[in-house]
């Protein structure tokens, strides 16, 4: 006990500095977590969160009996993996290459332009996509026809969509994401570079020996954060780009769009809480494993 008090005293200042954030998290995150019990309840307005009757595991039934649980979970994870890998590679490359340039204006302008897609909402992206890919008047098809090729019916063929969705995802997040890596590079001590220069390393060696290793902590944290959401699909993106076009669903349906379609007419609080909980638990397990692996490699890089 005494030991604990001494420890408490030693960390007093730190605890005081943490206090506002802890209070915030308790009030706005932990307290509302009580809502998780809805996953096991037959919610009614009169009963509310605690007063409604227990419903066992019935709220989970529709999802697991659908025969689609495996497919949509698999789609969710694979899409997220593809997005994580492609995004990380593109964003890091952009940041590293931009930093190496001397021209101030090119750097600034290129960065600003890359940020533009972030502001274009998925609803509008879907309009742009339709203008590109439509069978009747899309300019991709007009181009193909003018080059003497056959039209491609993108909206009636699921096999193109993993590529299409990945491209749009990379496009939308390249500016936003590369800023994080730029900031990481900017935090590298110049002296490390000077030392490399004295060693006679060429630019490519310098990038691989200094820049990338120095960016690693940021990269690992961002990876872990993405892995923490690996069972959650980007609803806005999938819903707007694919929508109710069922022909594409085998290739594009993720957990979130599936649940949305299933519950849109009867808006069942319990069932949506159940699917949410399922996703949370899987994410939790995945991130625990990933974090453990990182921790074994270097504790400084891990989330907790």
């Amino acid at each position: 006990m005494n030991k604990f008090l001494r420890k408490l005293n030693k960390n007093k200042i730190f605890l005081i500095m943490l206090a506002p954030a802890v209070v915030y998290a308790l009030l706005f995150s932990y307290l509302p977590m009580a809502g998780i019990v809805l996953a096991f309840k037959k919610y009614t307005y009169a009963g509310g969160i605690f007063g409604s009757a227990w419903n066992g595991l019935k709220n989970f039934e529709f999802f697991f009996r659908s025969g689609k649980a495996l497919l949509v979970s698999k789609n969710t994870v694979l899409y997220n993996l593809a997005f994580i890998i492609l995004n990380t590679l593109t964003q890091m490359t952009v940041a590293i290459l931009l930093v190496e340039l001397n021209g101030k204006y090119f750097k600034k302008i290129a960065q600003s332009l890359m940020f533009l897609p972030y502001f274009i909402s998925w609803v509008i992206v879907s309009v742009i996509a339709f203008n590109m890919l439509s069978n009747d008047f899309g300019f991709v098809n007009s181009f193909l026809v003018s080059m003497g090729f056959e039209k491609i019916s993108f909206y009636n063929n699921g096999k193109y969509w993993p590529v299409i969705l990945s491209i749009f995802n990379v496009w939308k997040s390249v500016g936003y994401g590369s800023v994080l890596y730029l900031a990481a590079i900017m935090g590298i001590d110049t002296e490390v570079y000077d030392a490399a220069a004295i060693d006679g390393a060429n630019v490519f060696q310098r990038i691989f020996r200094v820049t990338i290793p120095q960016m690693a902590p940021t990269m690992v944290i961002l990876l872990l954060l993405s892995i923490g959401g690996i069972f959650r699909g980007n609803f806005d993106m999938f819903y707007n780009l694919v929508g109710n076009n069922g022909i594409l669903h085998p290739a594009t349906d993720v957990i979130d769009t599936f649940t949305f379609r299933a519950l849109i007419t009867n808006n069942d609080f319990g069932m949506s809480a159940a699917v949410g909980l399922f996703q949370s638990v899987l994410c939790f397990v995945t991130v625990l494993v990933a974090n453990k692996l990182v921790n074994n490699y270097d504790p400084d890089y891990s989330l907790f």
Partner: peptide, 18 residues
């Protein structure tokens, strides 16, 4: 039959509308 209806709703776009 809420479970059944939710399931049917989720299938419509893929198997029924086309």
């Amino acid at each position: 039959v809420t479970n059944e209806l939710a399931l049917i709703d989720s299938l419509v776009a893929q198997y029924y509308t086309p």
